[in-house]
């Protein structure tokens, strides 16, 4: 688990130094309470909070992903939890910004919150209900990359399925074309956009799996598009 935290911290540092002007101030918890109203349709937080459509959010900072007992999480978040992902400011910020980019099969039916300021407010509010407030420093501005969503031009690339088929042979050393989902997730029949977004999340190291970070890390945008086209059409 340590290495994961370390790699995320160092990622945050890189982002901060590359885009110093994008760093957010700590949000305002009172404003965040208003933002939370939309979340409150499914999530509760505070004394006596219970799981509803979504898990309760008490103690979310510093909690392992998919760790609330008795809540039925998506496979994706469950796997990330097992891989060692622990929610901190950066990761929650990314998740809230674009939940599907983070975990393609998330059950959270929420399109995401694009406004970085509102996200910072929301997280400042949620942080009140965590004993261990993760990596939000007390006063200094917290670095957080914005725009984790994949560039529209990249999403618009039309992949070459023939090239995708060739490249896919690297994937099928582990992932099965019949859609078997045991131990290693199924990747056939995905909407191409979800596939592309997921691969870029590994490539950019937002998602924590070392094999996938390595595999995605050396794929070009065109190659990812080609794989998305091939696997999207491959029926399970």
């Amino acid at each position: 688990m340590d290495w994961i935290r370390r790699s995320f911290y160092s990622l945050a540092a890189v982002v901060a130094s590359a885009f110093p002007s994008l760093a957010n101030d700590i949000g305002q918890a009172d404003k965040g309470e208003a933002v939370f109203r939309e979340c409150a349709r499914c999530h509760s937080v505070g004394e006596g909070a219970k799981n509803r459509v979504g898990p309760h959010l008490n103690g979310i900072f510093g909690r392992r992903a998919a760790a609330v007992d008795g809540f039925n999480y998506s496979n994706g978040l469950t796997r990330m939890g097992k891989d060692g992902l622990v929610w901190d400011f950066d990761l929650l910020d990314r998740y809230v910004e674009n939940p599907k980019a983070f975990a393609s099969d998330t059950r959270m039916a929420y399109k995401g919150l694009k406004d970085a300021g509102q996200r910072a407010d929301l997280l400042a509010f949620l942080r009140r209900y965590s004993d261990d407030p993760g990596n939000i420093p007390e006063a200094a501005p917290t670095a957080s990359g914005t725009d984790h969503a994949v560039d529209a031009a990249i999403l618009a690339l039309q992949g070459d399925p023939e090239y995708g088929e060739y490249l896919s042979s690297e994937c099928t050393s582990c992932h099965q074309l019949d859609g078997d989902n045991d131990g290693i997730p199924a990747i056939v029949g995905w909407p191409t956009e979800d596939f592309v977004v997921a691969m870029h999340a590994y490539k950019d190291k937002f998602r924590p799996h070392p094999v996938m970070q390595m595999m995605a890390g050396r794929l070009s945008n065109e190659e990812i598009a080609a794989l998305a086209a091939y696997f999207g059409a491959a029926a399970p």
Binding site: R64, K82, D83, G84, S173, C174, Q176, D180, G183, I184
Partner: peptide, 17 residues
């Protein structure tokens, strides 16, 4: 938890390869 996930992944890999 991570070690267990790694083992489970190896079972998936065996079936895949």
């Amino acid at each position: 938890t991570l070690r267990k996930a790694t083992y489970e992944e190896s079972i998936g890999w065996y079936a895949g390869i």
